[in-house]
Design a binder for these strands. Structure first.
Length: 506
RNA sequence: GAGAAGCUAGCUCAGUCGGUAGAGCAACUCCCUUUUAAGGAGUGGGUCCCGGGUUCGAUUCCCGGGCUUCUCACCA
Protein backbone atom coordinates (compact mmCIF):
# COMPACT_ATOMS: atom_id res chain seq x y z
CA UNK A 1 0.00 0.00 0.00
CA UNK A 2 1.01 3.57 -0.52
CA UNK A 3 1.34 6.19 2.15
CA UNK A 4 -1.36 6.30 4.74
CA UNK A 5 -3.50 9.35 4.99
CA UNK A 6 -3.07 11.52 8.02
CA UNK A 7 -6.47 10.42 9.30
CA UNK A 8 -5.65 6.76 8.95
CA UNK A 9 -2.35 7.24 10.76
CA UNK A 10 -4.06 9.02 13.62
CA UNK A 11 -6.45 6.15 14.04
CA UNK A 12 -3.64 3.62 14.02
CA UNK A 13 -1.98 5.64 16.76
CA UNK A 14 -5.13 5.53 18.84
CA UNK A 15 -5.48 1.83 18.16
CA UNK A 16 -1.92 1.28 19.39
CA UNK A 17 -2.65 3.28 22.55
CA UNK A 18 -5.67 1.11 23.26
CA UNK A 19 -3.69 -2.06 22.69
CA UNK A 20 -0.82 -0.76 24.87
CA UNK A 21 -3.25 -0.31 27.69
CA UNK A 22 -4.15 -4.00 27.44
CA UNK A 23 -7.57 -3.40 25.91
CA UNK A 24 -8.58 -5.61 23.00
CA UNK A 25 -9.95 -3.29 20.29
CA UNK A 26 -11.53 -6.27 18.52
CA UNK A 27 -12.86 -8.49 21.32
CA UNK A 28 -14.30 -11.88 20.51
CA UNK A 29 -17.85 -11.29 21.60
CA UNK A 30 -20.51 -9.03 23.04
CA UNK A 31 -23.52 -11.24 23.48
CA UNK A 32 -25.94 -9.14 25.52
CA UNK A 33 -26.90 -6.66 22.85
CA UNK A 34 -30.50 -5.52 22.90
CA UNK A 35 -32.16 -3.88 19.94
CA UNK A 36 -31.94 -0.11 20.31
CA UNK A 37 -35.42 0.57 19.00
CA UNK A 38 -36.91 -2.11 21.24
CA UNK A 39 -35.17 -0.95 24.40
CA UNK A 40 -36.06 2.66 23.64
CA UNK A 41 -39.67 1.67 23.32
CA UNK A 42 -39.53 -0.27 26.55
CA UNK A 43 -37.90 2.51 28.55
CA UNK A 44 -39.43 5.60 26.96
CA UNK A 45 -42.78 4.33 25.80
CA UNK A 46 -44.42 3.56 22.50
CA UNK A 47 -44.66 7.22 21.54
CA UNK A 48 -41.56 8.36 23.42
CA UNK A 49 -43.69 9.91 26.16
CA UNK A 50 -42.45 8.12 29.29
CA UNK A 51 -39.64 9.05 31.60
CA UNK A 52 -37.90 6.08 33.20
CA UNK A 53 -37.68 6.01 36.98
CA UNK A 54 -34.54 7.28 38.71
CA UNK A 55 -33.35 3.77 39.47
CA UNK A 56 -34.28 2.16 36.17
CA UNK A 57 -32.44 -1.09 35.51
CA UNK A 58 -29.41 -0.92 33.27
CA UNK A 59 -29.70 -2.28 29.74
CA UNK A 60 -27.02 -3.46 27.35
CA UNK A 61 -26.80 -2.55 23.72
CA UNK A 62 -24.26 -1.84 21.03
CA UNK A 63 -23.83 -0.02 17.77
CA UNK A 64 -21.75 2.26 15.63
CA UNK A 65 -20.77 5.64 17.02
CA UNK A 66 -22.32 8.19 14.66
CA UNK A 67 -21.95 11.36 16.72
CA UNK A 68 -19.64 12.50 19.50
CA UNK A 69 -20.28 15.66 21.49
CA UNK A 70 -17.33 16.12 23.79
CA UNK A 71 -18.07 18.16 26.94
CA UNK A 72 -14.73 17.69 28.61
CA UNK A 73 -14.90 15.02 31.28
CA UNK A 74 -18.24 13.90 29.91
CA UNK A 75 -19.31 13.07 26.40
CA UNK A 76 -22.52 12.53 24.55
CA UNK A 77 -22.44 9.78 21.94
CA UNK A 78 -25.01 8.63 19.50
CA UNK A 79 -24.87 4.99 18.61
CA UNK A 80 -26.75 3.39 15.77
CA UNK A 81 -27.77 -0.20 15.18
CA UNK A 82 -29.70 -1.77 12.33
CA UNK A 83 -32.97 -0.15 13.23
CA UNK A 84 -32.35 2.91 15.35
CA UNK A 85 -30.23 5.29 17.34
CA UNK A 86 -29.89 6.30 20.94
CA UNK A 87 -27.83 8.82 22.84
CA UNK A 88 -25.25 7.70 25.38
CA UNK A 89 -24.12 9.92 28.24
CA UNK A 90 -20.71 8.84 29.49
CA UNK A 91 -18.32 10.40 31.97
CA UNK A 92 -15.48 9.47 34.30
CA UNK A 93 -17.99 9.50 37.13
CA UNK A 94 -19.57 6.20 36.21
CA UNK A 95 -16.98 4.59 33.95
CA UNK A 96 -13.96 2.71 35.25
CA UNK A 97 -10.52 3.82 34.14
CA UNK A 98 -10.25 1.46 31.18
CA UNK A 99 -13.70 2.32 29.89
CA UNK A 100 -12.98 6.03 30.30
CA UNK A 101 -9.78 5.50 28.35
CA UNK A 102 -11.84 3.97 25.57
CA UNK A 103 -14.21 6.95 25.72
CA UNK A 104 -11.40 9.43 25.26
CA UNK A 105 -9.97 7.43 22.37
CA UNK A 106 -13.25 7.04 20.55
CA UNK A 107 -13.73 7.93 16.90
CA UNK A 108 -16.76 8.27 14.73
CA UNK A 109 -17.35 4.89 13.14
CA UNK A 110 -16.18 2.82 16.10
CA UNK A 111 -18.51 0.08 17.22
CA UNK A 112 -19.05 0.01 20.97
CA UNK A 113 -21.00 -1.96 23.53
CA UNK A 114 -22.72 -0.02 26.28
CA UNK A 115 -24.38 -0.89 29.54
CA UNK A 116 -26.35 1.88 31.15
CA UNK A 117 -29.49 3.17 32.80
CA UNK A 118 -32.17 4.75 30.65
CA UNK A 119 -32.81 8.39 31.59
CA UNK A 120 -33.73 11.69 30.06
CA UNK A 121 -31.34 14.63 29.83
CA UNK A 122 -32.36 18.16 30.74
CA UNK A 123 -33.50 18.71 27.21
CA UNK A 124 -35.55 15.51 27.29
CA UNK A 125 -33.43 13.39 24.99
CA UNK A 126 -33.85 9.65 25.66
CA UNK A 127 -30.41 8.48 26.71
CA UNK A 128 -28.44 5.76 28.43
CA UNK A 129 -26.23 6.74 31.35
CA UNK A 130 -23.22 4.57 30.63
CA UNK A 131 -21.91 2.32 33.37
CA UNK A 132 -19.59 0.52 31.03
CA UNK A 133 -18.29 1.21 27.56
CA UNK A 134 -16.58 -1.53 25.55
CA UNK A 135 -14.72 -1.12 22.30
CA UNK A 136 -16.05 -3.81 19.96
CA UNK A 137 -14.45 -2.73 16.70
CA UNK A 138 -12.08 0.17 16.15
CA UNK A 139 -12.74 2.17 13.01
CA UNK A 140 -9.61 2.78 10.94
CA UNK A 141 -11.28 4.01 7.77
CA UNK A 142 -13.15 7.22 8.60
CA UNK A 143 -16.78 7.32 7.59
CA UNK A 144 -18.49 10.36 6.16
CA UNK A 145 -20.26 12.29 8.87
CA UNK A 146 -23.96 12.85 8.48
CA UNK A 147 -25.48 15.55 10.58
CA UNK A 148 -29.16 16.00 10.82
CA UNK A 149 -31.53 18.65 12.04
CA UNK A 150 -35.27 18.78 11.57
CA UNK A 151 -35.08 15.98 9.06
CA UNK A 152 -32.57 17.85 6.94
CA UNK A 153 -29.23 16.15 6.48
CA UNK A 154 -25.94 17.90 6.11
CA UNK A 155 -23.03 16.47 4.18
CA UNK A 156 -23.33 12.71 4.15
CA UNK A 157 -22.40 10.97 0.94
CA UNK A 158 -23.78 11.78 -2.45
CA UNK A 159 -20.99 10.23 -4.53
CA UNK A 160 -23.04 7.68 -6.42
CA UNK A 161 -20.03 5.65 -7.40
CA UNK A 162 -18.94 5.24 -3.77
CA UNK A 163 -22.48 4.30 -2.80
CA UNK A 164 -22.40 1.41 -5.30
CA UNK A 165 -18.79 0.31 -5.02
CA UNK A 166 -18.64 0.56 -1.25
CA UNK A 167 -22.21 -0.26 -0.37
CA UNK A 168 -21.13 -0.90 3.24
CA UNK A 169 -20.46 2.82 3.55
CA UNK A 170 -23.77 3.72 1.95
CA UNK A 171 -25.57 1.39 4.36
CA UNK A 172 -23.62 2.55 7.39
CA UNK A 173 -24.26 6.20 6.65
CA UNK A 174 -27.49 6.48 4.71
CA UNK A 175 -30.74 5.46 6.43
CA UNK A 176 -32.59 5.47 3.12
CA UNK A 177 -30.24 2.84 1.71
CA UNK A 178 -30.80 0.61 4.74
CA UNK A 179 -34.55 1.08 4.43
CA UNK A 180 -34.52 0.20 0.73
CA UNK A 181 -32.83 -3.16 1.24
CA UNK A 182 -34.97 -3.98 4.24
CA UNK A 183 -37.93 -3.33 1.99
CA UNK A 184 -36.44 -5.57 -0.67
CA UNK A 185 -36.08 -8.35 1.87
CA UNK A 186 -39.66 -7.83 3.04
CA UNK A 187 -40.89 -8.03 -0.54
CA UNK A 188 -39.10 -11.33 -1.17
CA UNK A 189 -40.40 -12.77 2.09
CA UNK A 190 -43.95 -11.58 1.45
CA UNK A 191 -44.05 -13.06 -2.05
CA UNK A 192 -42.75 -16.39 -0.76
CA UNK A 193 -45.27 -16.46 2.08
CA UNK A 194 -48.07 -15.54 -0.27
CA UNK A 195 -47.23 -18.36 -2.67
CA UNK A 196 -46.58 -20.93 0.04
CA UNK A 197 -49.99 -20.11 1.49
CA UNK A 198 -51.42 -21.17 -1.87
CA UNK A 199 -49.47 -24.43 -1.84
CA UNK A 200 -46.83 -23.45 -4.35
CA UNK A 201 -43.48 -25.12 -3.80
CA UNK A 202 -40.19 -23.29 -4.24
CA UNK A 203 -37.69 -25.13 -6.40
CA UNK A 204 -34.17 -24.58 -7.69
CA UNK A 205 -33.16 -25.36 -11.25
CA UNK A 206 -29.76 -25.13 -12.93
CA UNK A 207 -27.90 -21.85 -13.20
CA UNK A 208 -25.31 -23.60 -15.37
CA UNK A 209 -26.91 -24.89 -18.51
CA UNK A 210 -25.58 -26.60 -21.61
CA UNK A 211 -28.24 -24.82 -23.68
CA UNK A 212 -29.30 -21.34 -22.62
CA UNK A 213 -32.91 -21.15 -23.68
CA UNK A 214 -36.28 -20.03 -22.34
CA UNK A 215 -35.70 -16.47 -23.53
CA UNK A 216 -34.05 -14.64 -26.40
CA UNK A 217 -30.91 -13.09 -24.96
CA UNK A 218 -27.14 -13.34 -25.10
CA UNK A 219 -25.81 -15.62 -22.38
CA UNK A 220 -22.59 -15.57 -20.35
CA UNK A 221 -20.39 -18.44 -21.38
CA UNK A 222 -18.26 -20.46 -19.02
CA UNK A 223 -16.37 -23.73 -18.98
CA UNK A 224 -16.46 -26.79 -16.79
CA UNK A 225 -12.98 -28.20 -16.45
CA UNK A 226 -13.61 -31.78 -15.34
CA UNK A 227 -16.20 -32.41 -18.03
CA UNK A 228 -14.40 -30.14 -20.47
CA UNK A 229 -17.63 -28.66 -21.76
CA UNK A 230 -18.93 -25.21 -22.52
CA UNK A 231 -21.71 -24.08 -20.23
CA UNK A 232 -23.93 -21.04 -20.11
CA UNK A 233 -25.26 -19.07 -17.18
CA UNK A 234 -28.98 -19.35 -17.43
CA UNK A 235 -30.97 -16.59 -19.11
CA UNK A 236 -34.23 -18.03 -17.74
CA UNK A 237 -35.34 -21.03 -15.69
CA UNK A 238 -38.51 -21.46 -17.74
CA UNK A 239 -37.87 -24.70 -19.58
CA UNK A 240 -36.69 -26.48 -16.43
CA UNK A 241 -39.69 -25.34 -14.43
CA UNK A 242 -42.02 -26.69 -17.09
CA UNK A 243 -40.17 -30.02 -16.93
CA UNK A 244 -41.25 -30.12 -13.29
CA UNK A 245 -44.87 -29.65 -14.32
CA UNK A 246 -44.34 -32.56 -16.70
CA UNK A 247 -42.99 -34.48 -13.71
CA UNK A 248 -46.23 -33.95 -11.84
CA UNK A 249 -45.75 -30.96 -9.55
CA UNK A 250 -48.71 -28.68 -10.09
CA UNK A 251 -47.64 -25.39 -8.51
CA UNK A 252 -43.98 -24.40 -8.59
CA UNK A 253 -42.01 -21.21 -8.42
CA UNK A 254 -38.39 -20.17 -8.47
CA UNK A 255 -37.18 -16.77 -7.33
CA UNK A 256 -33.55 -16.34 -8.20
CA UNK A 257 -30.95 -14.84 -10.48
CA UNK A 258 -30.86 -14.75 -14.26
CA UNK A 259 -27.84 -13.65 -16.24
CA UNK A 260 -27.89 -11.83 -19.53
CA UNK A 261 -24.80 -10.65 -21.30
CA UNK A 262 -26.23 -7.35 -22.42
CA UNK A 263 -26.05 -3.67 -21.78
CA UNK A 264 -26.28 -1.99 -18.40
CA UNK A 265 -28.77 0.78 -17.79
CA UNK A 266 -31.04 2.21 -15.13
CA UNK A 267 -33.35 -0.73 -15.90
CA UNK A 268 -30.80 -3.46 -16.60
CA UNK A 269 -28.18 -5.24 -14.53
CA UNK A 270 -26.38 -8.25 -16.06
CA UNK A 271 -27.57 -10.40 -13.17
CA UNK A 272 -31.09 -9.74 -12.07
CA UNK A 273 -33.73 -11.47 -10.03
CA UNK A 274 -36.83 -13.01 -11.54
CA UNK A 275 -39.61 -14.99 -10.11
CA UNK A 276 -41.17 -17.54 -12.40
CA UNK A 277 -44.38 -19.23 -11.36
CA UNK A 278 -46.09 -22.19 -13.05
CA UNK A 279 -49.49 -23.58 -12.28
CA UNK A 280 -50.90 -26.70 -13.91
CA UNK A 281 -54.51 -26.70 -15.05
CA UNK A 282 -54.40 -22.92 -15.20
CA UNK A 283 -54.08 -20.47 -18.06
CA UNK A 284 -52.96 -16.92 -18.69
CA UNK A 285 -56.20 -15.58 -17.22
CA UNK A 286 -55.36 -17.33 -13.97
CA UNK A 287 -51.90 -15.81 -14.06
CA UNK A 288 -53.32 -12.36 -14.69
CA UNK A 289 -55.36 -12.62 -11.54
CA UNK A 290 -52.35 -14.01 -9.67
CA UNK A 291 -50.28 -11.02 -10.81
CA UNK A 292 -52.88 -8.59 -9.53
CA UNK A 293 -53.16 -10.53 -6.28
CA UNK A 294 -49.40 -10.46 -5.69
CA UNK A 295 -49.02 -6.73 -6.33
CA UNK A 296 -52.08 -5.80 -4.32
CA UNK A 297 -51.07 -8.05 -1.47
CA UNK A 298 -47.56 -6.55 -1.40
CA UNK A 299 -48.98 -3.04 -1.37
CA UNK A 300 -51.42 -3.69 1.43
CA UNK A 301 -48.95 -5.66 3.50
CA UNK A 302 -45.93 -3.41 3.07
CA UNK A 303 -47.38 0.05 2.44
CA UNK A 304 -50.78 -0.38 3.98
CA UNK A 305 -52.48 1.00 0.90
CA UNK A 306 -52.97 0.17 -2.76
CA UNK A 307 -52.05 3.75 -3.64
CA UNK A 308 -48.31 3.97 -4.18
CA UNK A 309 -46.35 7.17 -4.69
CA UNK A 310 -43.82 6.84 -7.49
CA UNK A 311 -41.96 9.90 -8.71
CA UNK A 312 -44.62 12.43 -9.55
CA UNK A 313 -47.27 9.74 -9.95
CA UNK A 314 -49.54 7.90 -7.59
CA UNK A 315 -49.84 4.32 -8.80
CA UNK A 316 -53.04 2.51 -7.95
CA UNK A 317 -52.41 -1.20 -7.57
CA UNK A 318 -56.01 -1.91 -6.72
CA UNK A 319 -57.33 -4.82 -8.74
CA UNK A 320 -58.65 -5.40 -11.30
CA UNK A 321 -56.18 -3.60 -13.53
CA UNK A 322 -56.95 -2.18 -16.91
CA UNK A 323 -56.68 -4.74 -19.73
CA UNK A 324 -56.05 -3.95 -23.34
CA UNK A 325 -55.15 -6.00 -26.39
CA UNK A 326 -51.67 -5.49 -27.80
CA UNK A 327 -52.87 -4.44 -31.27
CA UNK A 328 -55.77 -2.53 -29.78
CA UNK A 329 -53.36 -0.52 -27.59
CA UNK A 330 -51.31 0.39 -30.64
CA UNK A 331 -54.41 1.49 -32.50
CA UNK A 332 -55.54 3.55 -29.54
CA UNK A 333 -52.26 5.31 -28.89
CA UNK A 334 -50.70 5.62 -32.33
CA UNK A 335 -53.71 5.47 -34.61
CA UNK A 336 -52.15 2.59 -36.54
CA UNK A 337 -54.56 -0.24 -37.27
CA UNK A 338 -52.62 -3.46 -37.74
CA UNK A 339 -55.59 -5.59 -36.78
CA UNK A 340 -57.00 -5.42 -40.27
CA UNK A 341 -54.17 -7.66 -41.51
CA UNK A 342 -54.95 -10.47 -39.10
CA UNK A 343 -56.98 -12.35 -41.67
CA UNK A 344 -54.00 -12.55 -44.00
CA UNK A 345 -51.59 -15.43 -43.72
CA UNK A 346 -48.58 -13.20 -44.42
CA UNK A 347 -49.25 -9.64 -43.30
CA UNK A 348 -47.44 -7.19 -45.63
CA UNK A 349 -44.19 -5.73 -44.27
CA UNK A 350 -44.06 -2.95 -46.81
CA UNK A 351 -47.53 -1.74 -45.91
CA UNK A 352 -46.70 -1.80 -42.19
CA UNK A 353 -43.51 0.17 -42.75
CA UNK A 354 -45.39 2.77 -44.73
CA UNK A 355 -47.90 3.14 -41.90
CA UNK A 356 -45.13 3.43 -39.30
CA UNK A 357 -43.21 5.98 -41.34
CA UNK A 358 -46.35 8.05 -41.67
CA UNK A 359 -46.30 8.74 -37.92
CA UNK A 360 -42.55 9.28 -37.76
CA UNK A 361 -41.30 5.85 -36.70
CA UNK A 362 -37.95 4.72 -38.05
CA UNK A 363 -38.91 1.32 -39.42
CA UNK A 364 -36.86 1.29 -42.63
CA UNK A 365 -34.30 -1.27 -41.36
CA UNK A 366 -36.83 -3.76 -40.03
CA UNK A 367 -37.42 -7.02 -41.86
CA UNK A 368 -40.74 -8.39 -40.70
CA UNK A 369 -44.27 -7.20 -40.24
CA UNK A 370 -44.23 -8.03 -36.53
CA UNK A 371 -40.98 -6.18 -35.90
CA UNK A 372 -42.62 -3.04 -37.26
CA UNK A 373 -45.66 -3.61 -35.07
CA UNK A 374 -43.48 -4.14 -32.02
CA UNK A 375 -41.61 -0.91 -32.75
CA UNK A 376 -44.92 0.95 -32.75
CA UNK A 377 -45.79 -0.71 -29.47
CA UNK A 378 -42.57 0.18 -27.68
CA UNK A 379 -42.47 3.74 -29.04
CA UNK A 380 -46.09 4.73 -28.79
CA UNK A 381 -47.65 2.50 -26.16
CA UNK A 382 -45.14 1.43 -23.50
CA UNK A 383 -44.15 4.86 -22.18
CA UNK A 384 -47.82 5.73 -21.70
CA UNK A 385 -48.65 2.72 -19.54
CA UNK A 386 -48.09 4.44 -16.23
CA UNK A 387 -50.98 2.97 -14.27
CA UNK A 388 -51.02 -0.84 -14.02
CA UNK A 389 -52.11 -2.27 -17.34
CA UNK A 390 -52.32 -5.80 -18.66
CA UNK A 391 -51.39 -5.86 -22.31
CA UNK A 392 -52.78 -9.05 -23.79
CA UNK A 393 -52.66 -11.12 -26.98
CA UNK A 394 -49.11 -10.76 -28.22
CA UNK A 395 -47.90 -11.79 -31.68
CA UNK A 396 -47.01 -15.46 -32.01
CA UNK A 397 -43.90 -14.51 -33.96
CA UNK A 398 -42.25 -13.12 -30.81
CA UNK A 399 -43.74 -15.70 -28.41
CA UNK A 400 -42.30 -19.14 -29.20
CA UNK A 401 -43.33 -20.69 -25.89
CA UNK A 402 -46.92 -19.45 -25.70
CA UNK A 403 -50.09 -21.13 -26.79
CA UNK A 404 -52.02 -19.78 -29.76
CA UNK A 405 -55.39 -18.24 -29.30
CA UNK A 406 -57.69 -20.95 -30.71
CA UNK A 407 -58.54 -20.13 -34.31
CA UNK A 408 -56.19 -17.14 -34.46
CA UNK A 409 -53.10 -17.70 -36.62
CA UNK A 410 -51.12 -14.70 -35.40
CA UNK A 411 -51.79 -14.07 -31.72
CA UNK A 412 -51.09 -16.02 -28.54
CA UNK A 413 -52.54 -16.22 -25.04
CA UNK A 414 -49.91 -14.00 -23.49
CA UNK A 415 -49.90 -10.83 -21.41
CA UNK A 416 -47.40 -8.41 -19.97
CA UNK A 417 -48.13 -6.19 -16.98
CA UNK A 418 -46.90 -2.60 -17.38
CA UNK A 419 -46.47 -0.06 -14.61
CA UNK A 420 -44.73 3.34 -14.79
CA UNK A 421 -44.02 2.68 -18.44
CA UNK A 422 -41.98 -0.38 -17.57
CA UNK A 423 -42.57 -3.99 -18.38
CA UNK A 424 -42.95 -5.70 -15.02
CA UNK A 425 -43.43 -9.26 -16.20
CA UNK A 426 -44.46 -11.67 -18.86
CA UNK A 427 -46.92 -14.51 -18.79
CA UNK A 428 -48.81 -16.93 -20.97
CA UNK A 429 -50.77 -20.07 -21.38
CA UNK A 430 -47.84 -22.41 -21.85
CA UNK A 431 -47.46 -24.18 -25.14
CA UNK A 432 -47.72 -27.90 -24.34
CA UNK A 433 -47.99 -29.38 -27.82
CA UNK A 434 -44.56 -30.96 -28.41
CA UNK A 435 -44.83 -30.97 -32.20
CA UNK A 436 -45.94 -27.36 -32.29
CA UNK A 437 -43.12 -26.49 -29.88
CA UNK A 438 -40.65 -28.16 -32.20
CA UNK A 439 -41.98 -26.12 -35.13
CA UNK A 440 -41.69 -22.91 -33.10
CA UNK A 441 -38.08 -23.69 -32.19
CA UNK A 442 -37.39 -24.37 -35.85
CA UNK A 443 -38.92 -21.04 -36.81
CA UNK A 444 -36.64 -19.33 -34.29
CA UNK A 445 -33.63 -21.08 -35.79
CA UNK A 446 -34.77 -20.06 -39.26
CA UNK A 447 -35.14 -16.43 -38.17
CA UNK A 448 -31.65 -16.55 -36.73
CA UNK A 449 -30.28 -18.01 -39.98
CA UNK A 450 -31.87 -15.05 -41.76
CA UNK A 451 -29.91 -12.71 -39.56
CA UNK A 452 -32.42 -11.87 -36.87
CA UNK A 453 -30.90 -10.56 -33.64
CA UNK A 454 -31.50 -12.69 -30.60
CA UNK A 455 -33.72 -15.72 -31.00
CA UNK A 456 -34.56 -18.61 -28.74
CA UNK A 457 -32.26 -21.63 -28.74
CA UNK A 458 -33.73 -25.03 -29.43
CA UNK A 459 -33.85 -27.33 -26.41
CA UNK A 460 -34.52 -30.80 -27.75
CA UNK A 461 -34.81 -32.43 -24.33
CA UNK A 462 -37.54 -29.93 -23.50
CA UNK A 463 -39.44 -31.11 -26.57
CA UNK A 464 -38.98 -34.66 -25.31
CA UNK A 465 -40.38 -33.60 -21.97
CA UNK A 466 -43.47 -32.18 -23.66
CA UNK A 467 -43.86 -35.47 -25.52
CA UNK A 468 -44.19 -37.14 -22.12
CA UNK A 469 -47.11 -34.81 -21.60
CA UNK A 470 -47.58 -31.50 -19.80
CA UNK A 471 -51.04 -30.50 -18.63
CA UNK A 472 -52.45 -27.14 -19.71
CA UNK A 473 -50.40 -24.71 -17.64
CA UNK A 474 -50.24 -21.04 -16.87
CA UNK A 475 -46.81 -19.44 -16.42
CA UNK A 476 -45.80 -16.04 -15.07
CA UNK A 477 -42.51 -14.19 -14.71
CA UNK A 478 -42.03 -10.99 -12.74
CA UNK A 479 -38.87 -8.89 -12.65
CA UNK A 480 -38.20 -8.54 -8.95
CA UNK A 481 -35.72 -5.69 -9.21
CA UNK A 482 -38.18 -3.55 -11.12
CA UNK A 483 -40.89 -4.46 -8.67
CA UNK A 484 -38.66 -3.29 -5.82
CA UNK A 485 -37.91 -0.09 -7.75
CA UNK A 486 -41.63 0.55 -7.88
CA UNK A 487 -42.21 -0.02 -4.18
CA UNK A 488 -39.03 1.78 -3.10
CA UNK A 489 -39.70 4.70 -5.43
CA UNK A 490 -36.30 4.38 -7.13
CA UNK A 491 -35.54 5.21 -10.73
CA UNK A 492 -32.32 3.20 -11.06
CA UNK A 493 -32.05 -0.57 -10.74
CA UNK A 494 -28.65 -0.01 -9.08
CA UNK A 495 -30.44 1.52 -6.12
CA UNK A 496 -32.24 -1.76 -5.39
CA UNK A 497 -29.34 -4.17 -6.03
CA UNK A 498 -26.87 -4.29 -3.15
CA UNK A 499 -23.82 -4.74 -5.33
CA UNK A 500 -24.63 -3.73 -8.91
CA UNK A 501 -22.07 -4.61 -11.56
CA UNK A 502 -19.57 -1.81 -12.19
CA UNK A 503 -16.41 -1.83 -14.18
CA UNK A 504 -13.56 -2.78 -11.84
CA UNK A 505 -11.35 0.07 -10.74
CA UNK A 506 -7.78 -0.34 -11.86
C1' G B 1 -21.64 0.67 -28.74
C1' A B 2 -22.87 6.55 -29.40
C1' G B 3 -23.55 11.48 -27.31
C1' A B 4 -23.54 14.89 -22.99
C1' A B 5 -21.85 16.02 -18.01
C1' G B 6 -18.68 15.11 -13.85
C1' C B 7 -13.87 13.72 -11.28
C1' U B 8 -10.19 19.40 -6.42
C1' A B 9 -8.74 17.65 1.56
C1' G B 10 -11.85 11.82 4.90
C1' C B 11 -17.12 13.94 3.24
C1' U B 12 -20.00 18.01 0.70
C1' C B 13 -18.40 21.64 -2.52
C1' A B 14 -16.02 26.61 -4.14
C1' G B 15 -11.91 28.35 -7.16
C1' U B 16 -7.66 29.36 -10.34
C1' C B 17 -9.25 34.65 -17.64
C1' G B 18 -2.10 29.62 -17.02
C1' G B 19 1.92 31.69 -11.62
C1' U B 20 1.22 24.37 -7.75
C1' A B 21 -5.49 26.05 -4.17
C1' G B 22 -10.02 27.48 -0.36
C1' A B 23 -14.77 26.92 2.84
C1' G B 24 -18.05 24.00 6.05
C1' C B 25 -18.10 19.44 8.43
C1' A B 26 -14.55 15.56 9.98
C1' A B 27 -9.31 15.22 12.19
C1' C B 28 -5.36 17.05 15.80
C1' U B 29 -4.08 20.30 20.52
C1' C B 30 -6.38 23.01 24.52
C1' C B 31 -11.04 24.71 27.62
C1' C B 32 -15.86 22.95 29.12
C1' U B 33 -19.77 17.07 33.52
C1' U B 34 -27.07 17.15 30.65
C1' U B 35 -25.17 18.44 24.95
C1' U B 36 -27.69 17.53 20.29
C1' A B 37 -25.91 20.52 12.91
C1' A B 38 -23.16 21.59 21.07
C1' G B 39 -19.82 25.84 21.93
C1' G B 40 -14.90 28.62 22.35
C1' A B 41 -9.38 29.16 21.04
C1' G B 42 -5.59 27.26 17.97
C1' U B 43 -3.25 23.59 14.26
C1' G B 44 -2.43 20.25 10.46
C1' G B 45 -4.21 17.98 6.04
C1' G B 46 -4.11 18.01 -1.31
C1' U B 47 0.34 13.44 -7.15
C1' C B 48 -6.60 19.37 -8.14
C1' C B 49 -8.47 11.12 -11.85
C1' C B 50 -4.02 9.25 -15.04
C1' G B 51 -0.52 9.97 -19.28
C1' G B 52 1.39 13.06 -23.09
C1' G B 53 1.70 17.98 -25.58
C1' U B 54 2.01 23.50 -25.72
C1' U B 55 4.47 26.90 -22.27
C1' C B 56 9.64 29.94 -18.53
C1' G B 57 5.57 27.68 -15.74
C1' A B 58 -0.41 23.29 -16.43
C1' U B 59 -4.94 21.59 -11.42
C1' U B 60 -6.45 25.34 -15.30
C1' C B 61 -5.36 25.21 -22.40
C1' C B 62 -4.86 20.96 -26.25
C1' C B 63 -4.64 15.50 -27.30
C1' G B 64 -5.19 10.54 -25.49
C1' G B 65 -6.83 7.30 -21.58
C1' G B 66 -9.71 5.79 -16.94
C1' C B 67 -14.06 5.64 -13.97
C1' U B 68 -19.05 7.32 -12.91
C1' U B 69 -23.77 9.51 -14.03
C1' C B 70 -27.63 10.82 -17.57
C1' U B 71 -29.80 10.07 -22.48
C1' C B 72 -29.98 6.71 -26.67
C1' A B 73 -29.21 1.64 -28.75
C1' C B 74 -29.87 -4.12 -27.17
C1' C B 75 -32.80 -6.29 -23.56
C1' A B 76 -36.38 -7.76 -18.50
Amino acid sequence: MGELTELHEQRLTKLAAIVDRGIDPYPVRFTDKQDITALRREAFGESDDLTPPENAAAVATAGRVVAIRDMGKAQFLQIQDQNGRIQIYASNKTLNDNDYFVLTHLDLGDIVGVKGRPFRTKTGEPSLHAESLTMLSKNLQPLPVVKEKDGETYDGISDIEMRYRQRYIDLAVNPDARATFLLRSAILRTIREFLHAQNFIEVETPMLQAVASGAAARPFKTHHNALDIELYMRIAPELYLKRLIVGGYEKVFEMNRNFRNEGISTKHNPEFTMIEIYQAYADYETMMRLTEDIFEHLALKLIGSTELPYGKHVISLKKPWKRIGYLESIREMSGLDFEKFLTEENPPVAEAKKMAAAIGLKAENLNTFWEVVDLAFSEKVEPNLVQPTMVTHFPKAISPLAKSIPGNPHLVERFEPYITGREMGNAFSELNDPLEQERRFNEQAAQKAEGAGETMETDTDFVTALKVGMPPTGGLGIGIDRLVMLFANKSSIKDVILFPLLRPQK
